[in-house]
Amino acid sequence: MIDVYSWPTPNGHKVHIMLEECGQRLGRDWQVHPIDIGAGDQFQADFLRISPNNKIPALVDPHGPDGRPISLFESGAILLYLAAKFGKFLPKSDRQKFEVLQWLMFQMGGVGPLLGQAHHFRVYAPEKIDYAVQRYTKEAQRLYGVMNRRLEASPYLGGRSYSVADIAVFPWLRSWQNQGIAWADYPALKAWFDRIGARPAVQRAVQVLADARKPLTDDRAKAALFGAQQYARR
């Protein structure tokens, strides 16, 4: 059984979705170990051994590529590992594969970090800095525009088929309101978002640990995520 160390965040949801889409069912083929990032679980020694960057998700597969256990951190790497393991959601031909991978990298390098900053400065920052709010809100809107234009011409981000690119991006757009987005400005992207959200595997996956998540309002949680505890030398 695959062990997933996770929390109900966009990066956690990526892996939950991928496993369910690959036909792996929670409790039968994989199990989740909650890492409460507001309580500081990500700094525990056992977790740092498999995720040295103290970020979720991480995965341990007892049946790795050579038959031995393998542990992985970084959600994009985990998606590619699972795509190779199960032979799904990453095309075989070089041309189609790299078309998908460019959009996966677009999520890893742009959508995740910059939408995360928009969310932070609009919702969690202890003081409202207009420059930061405007900068990251406009960048969020720009990225939504890039994806909208792509989906005006293609049914999926990576091309004609559903892929790891769609799985990686979808969870990040679920907090669109906190990113300063009006869906009416991005009709093709909204149609894609609704289509992905209607998939049964996606619906199952976004419920994983959903009941455990708490609002990040107390000082302890903020210190773990944004303050001294996050930046302590280890």
Rank of each mutant, 00 (worst) to 15 (best):
H119T: 13
G67D: 08
Q102V: 12
G64M: 06
Q117I: 02
D218R: 14
Y144M: 09
P65M: 11
A77S: 15
M108V: 15
A210M: 10
A201Y: 07
I70N: 04
K214F: 12
T137N: 01
M18S: 07
K128S: 13
L189E: 06
F226M: 03
R142V: 05
F43E: 01
L59S: 09
V208M: 03
I196K: 03
E74P: 07
Y81I: 01
Q107C: 12
S175M: 15
G109L: 08
H120K: 03
L173D: 01
Y162D: 10
P126A: 09
R95F: 06
Y186Q: 01
D3K: 15
N148A: 05
Q229T: 12
D3Q: 15
A140M: 04
L151R: 03
G227L: 09
V100F: 08
M147H: 09
M147K: 09
Q177R: 13
Y144Q: 04
E127P: 00
Q24E: 11
A125V: 03
I56P: 03
Q230H: 12
A84M: 09
Q177M: 12
S75Y: 10
W103K: 02
C22L: 09
R150D: 05
I196L: 10
S93W: 00
I37N: 04
A223E: 15
R135G: 03
P171M: 14
E20V: 08
G227V: 09
Y124V: 07
G227K: 05
I181N: 02
W7S: 02
I37L: 15
R149C: 08
G76Q: 10
R233D: 13
E20Q: 06
H120D: 06
L151M: 13
K128I: 08
A118T: 06
S75E: 07
D211P: 02
I78T: 04
Q102C: 06
Y131K: 01
G116L: 13
K97D: 13
V15W: 12
M105R: 05
V169M: 04
F47T: 01
D218H: 13
G38H: 00
L151P: 04
H16P: 01
K92C: 11
L101V: 14
Q102D: 02
R234A: 11
A182H: 13
K88N: 00
V111T: 14
I56H: 05
G12M: 10
I56Y: 03
P69A: 04
G158F: 11
G112Q: 04
I56N: 04
S6P: 03
E20R: 03
L115W: 09
F89N: 04
Q96Y: 02
